[in-house]
């Protein structure tokens, strides 16, 4: 995979794409290869989607030489950004594109999960729709498997279709090692130190749901592991410190891993 790490892999300097990638608010995008952009097969169907398609493509590939007034130029510029986004959604599910996005993920370019229990797990950009102008970009956390709004308003206007619905799942299919360990820790609302009944009852129900899922998956031969399970296995040898350690853990992080016990 090291071969794909370089940001530009052609001698040709791409002014427009360089500018686009480095401009503020476009931090989520990676640079699309020249080769990929010039292969017409990869652009199938986009000519109906993008206005001034040919001019926009010329602009993205830096061969644009049209004397146009400012109005038209602005239109073409807008189309070029749209085109780039749509090609981007296709590009990032290819091997090269995935490798570039993994680099960006490791650099934390997409931000961290806002959920406290995820402890700042790096996020991935995604869209809820593959058709443009349906919804803006969302961020997926692989640890809690939920999606969040970007915290910065400059990212809030990016079209979700520029990343697509499949990208993040594809990434974990190709790089299963990047899949984080899941945790069963949760926030436990308390009032004056006492658990709140409604929340605790829901938590117990959810824990039951999780156990049922584990059981049914075990029946078909799939072992589901959470971080907490492994730490329990390590401690299984002796009884006395075991219960102490658990008691501490429950009090310590105020997020009981054992709420299905009905206490």
């Amino acid at each position: 995979m090291e071969d794909f790490n370089s940001e530009t892999d052609s001698d040709y300097t791409s002014y427009w794409r360089d500018w686009f990638i480095s401009s503020r608010g476009n931090e989520y995008f990676c640079e699309i290869d020249e080769d990929y952009l010039t292969d017409r097969f990869n652009l199938t169907g986009l000519n109906t989607e993008v206005a001034y398609y040919q001019y926009a493509l010329d602009l993205v590939t830096d061969v644009f030489d049209l004397d146009a007034d400012d109005d038209l130029r602005e239109q073409i510029e807008k189309s070029a950004r749209h085109l780039y986004g749509l090609v981007h959604a296709r590009y990032i599910v290819t091997t090269r594109g995935l490798a570039k996005m993994v680099d960006k993920l490791k650099r934390g370019d997409f931000g961290k999960c806002p959920r406290v229990m995820c402890e700042g797990h790096p996020l991935l950009p995604m869209g809820q729709h593959d058709t443009p102008s349906m919804s803006t970009v969302r961020l997926y956390c692989a640890r809690c498997e939920d999606i969040y709004h970007p915290k910065s308003s400059r990212h809030a206007s990016i079209d979700g279709a520029y990343f697509g619905t499949s990208f993040h799942s594809m990434l974990f299919q190709v790089y299963p090692a990047l899949m984080p360990e899941k945790s069963i820790r949760r926030y436990e609302p308390r009032v004056f130190g006492f658990k709140v009944h409604a929340s605790a009852a829901l938590a117990r129900w959810q824990d039951q749901y999780r156990e049922d899922m584990k059981t049914s998956l075990r029946d078909v031969g799939v072992e589901v592991k959470y971080i907490e399970d492994e730490s329990e296995d390590d401690l299984e040898d002796d009884d006395e410190p075991l219960s102490d350690a658990r008691e501490e853990k429950v009090i310590g992080d105020a997020a009981s891993a054992r709420m299905d016990l009905g206490n």
Partner: peptide, 22 residues
């Protein structure tokens, strides 16, 4: 999670594990 419109199976190694939370 969906790939090309198809749900990622629970039996997959990278399948959903955190549904209970929500």
């Amino acid at each position: 999670s969906r790939i090309y419109g198809f749900r990622v199976s629970e039996r997959s190694r990278s399948g959903p594990r955190m549904k209970w939370l929500r």
